[in-house]
Each structure stands twice: as C-alpha cells, then as structure tokens.
Design a protein around this nucleic acid. Sequence first.
DNA 1: CTTTTATCTCAACCTCTCTTGAGTTATTGA
DNA 2: TCAATAACTCAAGAGAGGTTGAGATAAAAG
Lengths: 115, 115
Amino acid sequence: MDEMQALDALGALSQETRLRIVRLLVTAGPGGMAAGAIGDAMGATSSRLSFHLTHLEAAGLVQSRREGRSIRYSAVYEALSGLIAFLMRDCCQGHPKVCTPALSACACSPVEPAE
Amino acid sequence: MDEMQALDALGALSQETRLRIVRLLVTAGPGGMAAGAIGDAMGATSSRLSFHLTHLEAAGLVQSRREGRSIRYSAVYEALSGLIAFLMRDCCQGHPKVCTPALSACACSPVEPAE
DNA sequence: CTTTTATCTCAACCTCTCTTGAGTTATTGA
DNA sequence: TCAATAACTCAAGAGAGGTTGAGATAAAAG
C-alpha cells in the first residue's frame, strides 16, 4: 500500500458510521452482509448508507456483489492488513516503542478463521 | 484507545501534510523538531503549519514544548501504537487474515509473527 | 527599550463532506 | 405485464476542513 492508498483508507475510516460498518463487516466474515442488513444495524437511511458504502468501496476497504435483489458487502482483509502494515512501516523505523506495544495487542494468532 | 480517540487520530492522519509531519517526527526521534524546521521540510507557510500541528496535537499524536524562541514538536509513540492496536483489536477478531500479514510487516520487533 | 526571530491567532474564502428527500434502476414473484 | 422489494443516484443545503495573508505574542539580542 502506497501513501495515496493509505490516505484514502485513513480518510474512509475516520468517519464514525464507516468505521462501524467496517467493524461490522469484519466480524460478519467473508460472506459479508446485504446492504439492507447493514442499514438496519446502523440505523441509517438507504441513501446515507449507500453514500458511505460507496466511499468505503472506493477506498478499497470493502467489496460488493449482487445476490438476487440484494447487494452483499464484505470486508477486504488485505486492505485492512495493508493499512496496518503501512502504519507500522512508517512509524516503526528505528522506534520499536511504536511497534512492539501494537504487536502484543493482537490476540488472534491462535484463533482459527471463521467460516 | 477508545473509538472517539481512534476517529480523531484517523482523521488527523488522513491528510497528506499531517501524515508526513508525523512520519518526519517519528524518524526525528524523541527529541522532535522545532516548528520552523518542520515547516522547512514540508514547504509550508507558518500559519498552515501551525494549523496542522495544532490539529495533530489535539488528536494526541504529537506533543510540544517551548525551548527558547522555538517550539519543539515530537511524536507521541503511545498514541501511534494505540491506534495500530485499536485497528487490530477491531479488525482481528476471528480473522487472522487481517492481523497476521500486518505482523510480518514490522521488522523492528523480536516478536515472531504468529502462524 | 527596541528590534529581530520564531511561532501563533484570526478572519475570509473556497472546497469537500455529510445528510436529506425525491426519484430511478434492477430483480423477483403474482 | 404489474406491483413489490432492494438498493442506487441526484440535487440542494448545512457544516467542517484547509489555505492565505495580516497581525499578535513570546523570547532573545543589541
């Protein structure tokens, strides 16, 4: 991930509704969720939701596919890990004080991927 | 770091000049740099620079102290690692696909990336 | 005490972002 | 085909964000 992509991703995540959508989709797993279900969870109108989903998709953080009448959105895991990696590369050089505490925050090593 | 702090930090980092200032200050080390030196490196006018430094300080990503005529700014390492940790906590649950690739991006730690 | 250096503050302006509401397109089933 | 459902698109308006230039404040030097 280069600087421009990182700026897009950071901008996309710096909005409350979008951050929550991403969190929801990450926990939802690779199958993702239909737009309507996301809207229900967020309490957002359809046009507002569409605006944020489009924004997230443009930033590469989520992807979509039509499924019948619904459109399912799912998290793009590589984009999220790419952003974290970008922050570490940029912040870590010569300063383990940034990186090392962050590493121990990740408790997922022994966890199996969800279906 | 809670959601509100994370939103502030993400918003602060989602701007090109501010992202570069943080990068500069991280590589500058704990001593930091005088505002003027940062401005020279960024090619920014004093009021523009002050605007962004104030923004970064409000977000908790940098701190300042007066030193003679200058004001020295330095990176707040805990805030940076806190943000990365927040992203990992939020993104990692049940999905090592996000976290594991990010771990290996950090070359400065004695911690081995989990398999 | 006055000047110089370093930086901040403020107001104006423009742009970008977000929300709302109305209207549109795509898909399915009667 | 017609109606219902799911989601998108568009235009308008309010508000936040970023830049500029002029002026203010703080500290050191003369």
